[in-house]
């Protein structure tokens, strides 16, 4: 049989094609273009091959900021996911307190990122901030602008405060969608609170938790505004995360080639790790 060839069908694909080209392919290709060339900013380019990539991948500076990025991301994931689930479990599932809890939980998410950074910066200042002054008054030697440990503590605390709510709301959505009958069936079987959590609530929350972990992973890997407003990457370079480093190279030093190469490596790391997370969490899951 002859296939009917209908060239007009391309017209239906065209709008999507143009849209994707403009919002993804062309910007990405610009970066790729920069990453293999040397430029002095006067619109003259020299081919440099994979020079920038090897340079970045071998540079101690990149290793350090990637390492800090990993520590930051895995710390906040290790805190925010269990904490978010725990808070969601304690929230009421019906009654007048439900909207109150939901609004309280949503509040941190509504605050602009640079405001969060500024807020925590002032809050944690050792001389005038409530947190900083309070800790010092209690006898702790706390100064996040001078001491590396204190800077990390404040950075992670701020992120936990800002983003745990997202995990809470997602986990809560998963919890309320479990029909009462599941709890009754577990009760009839004589299941305790832990068994109910392990065999009913956790499996039923699996999908939303996967989303929560992926979102938190990607967002924390790209975190910039709050961190830069809070610590500016300091003291020294001790809290310079990948995104902060990238901005320093691209806009501070105006090294467009290495910055472009770094962007691509950065993007590929996020893509690869997201894929690993997703595959691990969705393992054994039916289609």
């Amino acid at each position: 049989m002859n296939k009917t060839v209908n060239q007009k069908a391309w017209l239906f694909v065209l709008p999507v094609f143009i849209l994707v080209a403009f919002n993804a392919v062309i910007p990405l290709m610009t970066v790729v273009n920069y990453s293999v060339q040397e430029t002095f900013g006067d619109n003259t380019f020299f081919w440099s091959g994979v020079l920038w990539f090897t340079e970045i991948l071998q540079s101690e500076r990149f290793h350090d900021s990637l390492g800090r990025q990993m520590i930051f991301t895995f710390s906040i994931l290790a805190i925010e996911v269990p904490l978010g689930v725990a808070i969601a479990l304690t929230m009421p599932r019906k009654g007048a307190w439900v909207p109150v809890c939901l609004v309280l939980m949503a509040l941190p998410l509504l605050i602009p990122w640079n405001v969060v950074g500024a807020m925590w910066n002032i809050f944690a200042l050792p001389d005038i901030g409530l947190l900083g002054y309070g800790l010092n008054a209690m006898g702790f030697d706390y100064n996040f602008t001078r001491q590396i440990g204190d800077a990390w503590f404040t950075l992670i605390l701020m992120d936990v405060w800002h983003w745990t709510s997202l995990v809470v709301l997602l986990a809560y959505a998963g919890l309320v969608s479990i029909p009462d009958a599941y709890y009754q069936a577990a009760k009839i079987d004589g299941a305790g609170a832990f068994a109910i959590f392990r065999y009913i609530q956790l499996p039923k929350m699996k999908r939303v938790l996967t989303i929560a972990v992926l979102l938190r992973f990607m967002d924390s890997f790209m975190v910039y505004t709050e961190a830069v407003v809070l610590t500016g990457g300091g003291p020294g370079n001790s809290t310079t995360l990948l995104s902060i480093d990238l901005v320093k190279i691209a806009l501070g030093q105006f090294d467009l080639g290495p910055a472009a190469a770094m962007s691509i490596i950065y993007f590929l790391i996020i893509l690869a790790l997201s894929w690993v997370f997703y595959t691990l969490m969705m393992r054994n899951e039916e289609s």
């Binding site: 029909p179 009839i188 004589g190 065999y199 499996p203």
Partner: peptide
Amino acid sequence: VQNRNVSMVYQQFINYPNFTVYENIASP
């Protein structure tokens, strides 16, 4: 209810989601 010998089947299909059918039937 745990101390009474009762079982119940609901309108929704209630089974342990991450157990196999065998483990589900075996759970009680």
